[in-house]
Design a protein around this nucleic acid. Structure first.
Lengths: 222, 222
DNA sequence: AAATAGAAAATTGTATACAATTTAGTTTGA
DNA sequence: TCAAACTAAATTGTATACAATTTTCTATTT
């Protein structure tokens, strides 16, 4: 909505939430944010509204805004949807990607190799985003890409922790290799299945994933 | 966000957009809406923000808000996603619905029969919503249900027109019957496929659908 | 007469002021 | 000493005022 003030504000907060700088459950007081960004409460409220609409913050009427803490049930639900959307992206990408796009995807993949070998989590995280972004674009469905990206961002604070597990990096990299093959060969069904699995169970059991999450990040009674 | 004022305002506007009372492309001036609802511009802006986040209105910075007009390309993209989400709902519903829920779905289905036979479009539309809502609930995935419902609402102004086509009602009713069967029998794959087709091509060609849309409703250059 | 430039009006974005509700702190009672 | 109730402070929701940009209308020139 707002152009000059509220928009950068939204982006900054979104970034901090997605990266985990602002942990789920953190209170977001309008006055505090207004002072921090040297603006009035009005654009702050707009930004919070927008973040609430994405689901990144939760606004309880008359009781302020907090960084959204996702309950266990809801998180499983979101991963279930995420898997399907990622799978769909992969399927469409396998069908529709141009030759150049396939080459670029391969390049993105290789770019992650050194990070994977050196266990550079932050580096691999960036390469990982790039790889998946390529697939989103390749689906040739901008709306699907937007939705999938939004959900990925919303789950990012949790997925990020997951990638910190030992050996998760090399596993992820190997899976990317298989996905790249399937897409390169135009094998829609296989690309879909691989991407679905890649996201959901992340090659290990979902229970393992849950077990590694700090309990503070999970809302207890929701 | 806001409780007393902005929330009902949002619901009213959303309803009017979804039902087509406010046609795509209609300008939404803040002052005008403020006077109409006897409130200030502040809650109006909040409501518009929320509607923009759902995608029901488009806000161009410094240039006001209009009811979102979906371009042809984007509409096809959204239908593609919608089909997948509906199919997923059907698949999960076939797997997870309780006996009672299946009975309720059957009841919803039968409820639409008279409307279908009498060509009562408004009546059938309501029954149709009920039928699909049952499936959403049955997926036991509240997040998926929310997303699917939101997309359905966003496409509602266009789908509504489609249902007005001759014989579309009885076709839809017959398809519902098959879907009900698949879900009742727990045939996940078939339920998924049937619901996918039900949404997308709507049993006829997508081109036919496009051809029946008034050109005013489609944004020409986007 | 048409087109362009300028000015005025209207509309959006932001800030501030006010009202209402919630939360926290203190006091009083059992 | 603990609990409950009342008061005060803080925070959110709404309204209004002001600033900035866009749009429209008019006037002048070609």
């Amino acid at each position: 909505m707002s152009t000059k003030t509220a928009s950068p504000l939204r982006e900054t907060l979104e970034q901090e939430i997605v990266t985990g700088q602002l942990a789920p459950g953190t209170r977001l007081e309008e006055m505090g944010l207004a002072e921090r960004f040297h603006v009035s409460r009005t654009p702050v409220r707009e930004a919070l509204n927008q973040l609430a609409s994405i689901g990144l913050v939760e606004i309880r009427p008359r009781r302020g805004a907090v960084v959204a803490a996702i309950g266990l049930k809801q998180m499983m639900e979101m991963f279930e949807v995420m898997a399907e959307l990622e799978g769909m992206c992969g399927q469409l990408a396998a069908r529709r990607m141009s030759g150049d796009e396939r080459k670029k995807l391969a390049a993105c993949h290789l770019q992650g190799q050194p990070f994977s070998e050196n266990e550079d989590h932050d580096g691999y995280y960036a390469a990982n985003v790039c790889f998946h972004e390529c697939i989103y674009q390749g689906s040739r469905n901008a709306y699907l890409a937007d939705q999938t990206r939004a959900l990925r961002n919303r789950l990012a604070p949790y997925r990020r922790l997951q990638l910190r597990q030992r050996q998760r990096l090399s596993e992820s990299f190997q899976e990317h290799g298989k996905i790249l093959d399937a897409i390169t060969q135009g094998d829609e069904a296989r690309a879909k299945q691989l991407l679905r699995d890649h996201v959901t169970v992340q090659s290990g059991s979902f229970t393992d994933f849950i077990a590694t999450l700090p309990s503070e990040l999970i809302r207890n009674s929701a």
